[in-house]
Computed example of a mutant assay.
Amino acid sequence: MANIELDIWRGDWGLASIDVECLKILTYMKFIGVPVRVRECKSPFFTPKGTFPVMRDGSTVLTNFEAVVEHLKTLHYNTDVHLDSKLEAEASAFTQYLREKLYPAIQYAWWVDEKNYSELTRPTYAKALSLPFNFYYPSKFQSSAQEMVDALYGEHADLKDVERTIYSEAEKCLKTLSDRLGESEYFFGNRPSTFDATVFAYLAPLVKAPFPNPTLSNHVKGIANLSRYVARINQKNFRHVTDEYNKQNKSKNTTSTQSDREAANFPHQTRNKVLAAIFATIAMTGFAVANGLFTVNFKDEFDPTQDYNDMFENDEDDN
């Protein structure tokens, strides 16, 4: 089992990965406790599908969440053993429901919304990629998301109408999820399931990422039990990630506050230094004059009569 490797997109905002599909597999593996070597990779150029995640177990290479789950079951790792046939069917139906109603809204928020894409998504993925791939892949992923939205709502549909419709469907889905979860820790019993890994992966970036256009994000954050659900799973399974992120944020804030304080004090410090220098100069000059150490002979410095005499003398010489 120590031979299992998982290549993923890097993490950010206190999440183990910025990517939904990577978060699915990471979370599922955490649930079942499978030993795995995780690597944050800079380029998906040589991956089977041109993106992450990629799981390798010897000669087995998998890129699909469902395929990874099935493979791990053959190794006797399964987080759904507590589900009976009825709950399994319900979980399967809910998974399909999320795929049809919530996933398109997530793709729209990440890749199609122009403000989110230009100010959040593209810079985030450009940071995750090495040169020259950071110029290519964000646009490629955006095109794929746009094609999916076009296929669902029509290529020439008005984007504002699409946004209203897609977010309305997502909000209904989130309401259904919230009702199903209630005050339980997980969706099906007191243990996490494959469905929980999927829900967490869908919701966590919406809760954590700083969307410039936070329409969908704000709706998730406004549902208390879903927000607590995300925080609980993230803290329980990725505590080292959240702790490190909070530590870095605290360090940045401390440095920023100190810099701001110094910048704010700078004019006052400069003024005080200048006034002190002026006062010292006046005091020293007064002391020197009072004690006869310094005199000024204004006559020697400037005698206008002498200047004019010299001028006239020169004129007479010329004549």
Rank of each mutant, 00 (worst) to 15 (best):
A151S: 15
F195T: 06
E183G: 00
V207N: 07
S217P: 05
S227I: 06
N116P: 00
Y202L: 13
E171V: 07
V149Q: 04
L177W: 05
P214S: 11
P212D: 01
N134S: 15
S144M: 15
N225L: 00
G189I: 06
L206A: 05
R180I: 00
S118H: 14
T176G: 00
K172A: 05
P214C: 12
I106D: 02
K160G: 14
E185G: 04
Y167D: 08
T198H: 13
T215G: 05
A170G: 12
K160P: 00
D158L: 03
L152K: 14
I223A: 02
D150Y: 11
L177C: 04
R191C: 09
E185F: 00
R164A: 15
A201E: 13
L216Y: 04
A209F: 11
F133H: 13
T176V: 14
P138Y: 07
S130A: 15
A157K: 05
L181T: 02
L206H: 02
R164Q: 15
T194F: 04
C173I: 08
R191Y: 13
H219M: 00
Y136A: 10
L206M: 13
Y125G: 10
N134G: 12
V199E: 09
F133D: 04
Q146A: 03
M148V: 13
R228I: 02
E114F: 01
Y136L: 15
A197Q: 05
S139N: 13
K221R: 15
K172I: 09
Q142T: 07
H219N: 13
L120H: 06
R180L: 08
P132Y: 02
R164V: 07
P210C: 11
L159K: 12
R164Y: 14
F187H: 02
P205R: 11
L131P: 14
G222S: 10
G222Y: 06
T165Y: 02
S130C: 15
E169F: 03
T194S: 14
